[in-house]
Design a protein around this nucleic acid. Structure first.
Lengths: 168, 168
DNA sequence: TTAAACTTTCAGTAATTATTGAAAGTTTGT
DNA sequence: ACAAACTTTCAATAATTACTGAAAGTTTAA
């Protein structure tokens, strides 16, 4: 397989995966490009590489920075901003998990906690089923939250060795 | 909090969570309704509850069945089809993980494997960086795949007890 | 075999989400 | 203080994704 073909396919695949998981396809593609770039890239280079507009490039780079997956790199004597991606894949995964947990899991936890306070005086079948499901979710999401916190504090080797060892 | 309010908020929250994770909002809402319903529901009831069209209800119910989260239930002497959701939350999570792994992780694994076959004769910085990233991904995704397989075979109690015990 | 009762499909439309590009904003060097 | 070099914003537009509703399809009972 030729390099440019491989590169294009990698960018495509990463973008598709992102969009299937609710992440803007272009953002994922920008991330892909930076992941395989041996050097920091300017917004200019990124927009050319992906054939996207300046505005689009800018916004998606900012988003990646907010996700803590990309950071600015200033080259002395150059007024442009350059960008590089975190290259350690376990670190990438850790940051994505951390961010999604914060953005999506925590609000759900909050709602579930509110929904536990539903009045329990009348006990129709509907209300019983509802309460039971909320309690199940509360327990489950709580455990998940705790597990994810633990996982996030482990390094890759420790993590996988734990997983493999204990489920034999 | 009043029951109907709580119910509405639950359906909303579940729908929002779904859409953030690349799942059709309506599909997630149908799932939410079935999760808290004490009895099997007809397409009719579901479309009324959510104010959606028959076609929409039908398609999303089918999708939920394809995800193995909902199943048909036939009531003797009634020609309508009724639907119920799997109510055990760990089982729900397990099925979602299984399905997403099959649909999204496995294709990515396949692509990564192809991308390993890039010609290595010329060694520009670009090609070296690309190969290194692909190799990292290959290792990581492979380990993840193995871990998920192991996790999917455990029951909830075993799983969390393992996680909690080992990361102390 | 017919028709009622139901389910499925899908072309057209609506809603949502992403992108462009030009104008406004910012920073830096002189 | 100015202007060049750059970044950011955002209203208009495009692209994508989801939904409707009516027609077609299927199943069942008599």
């Amino acid at each position: 397989m030729e390099f440019n073909e491989a590169k294009a396919q990698f960018i495509q695949t990463w973008g598709k995966l992102g969009s299937e998981w609710g992440i803007n396809r272009t953002m994922a593609q920008v991330h892909a490009i930076l992941l395989i770039s041996p050097k920091a890239m300017s917004a200019e280079e990124i927009m050319n590489e992906l054939s996207i507009s300046r505005g689009n490039a800018n916004m998606n780079i900012r988003d990646l920075i907010n996700w803590n997956l990309v950071h600015k790199e200033l080259i002395p004597g150059d007024r442009k901003e350059y960008f590089t991606a975190e290259k350690d894949i376990w670190e990438v995964a850790r940051r994505i998990i951390k961010e999604r947990k914060k953005r999506e899991m925590e609000p759900v936890l909050k709602v579930i906690n509110q929904l536990k306070t539903i009045e329990g005086d009348q006990q129709t079948a509907e209300i019983k089923e509802f309460s039971s499901m909320i309690n199940q979710l509360d327990t489950f999401v709580g455990k998940m939250d705790k597990s994810v916190n633990l996982l996030l504090n482990e390094n890759e080797n420790k993590l996988f060795s734990i997983l493999f060892k204990l489920m034999s």
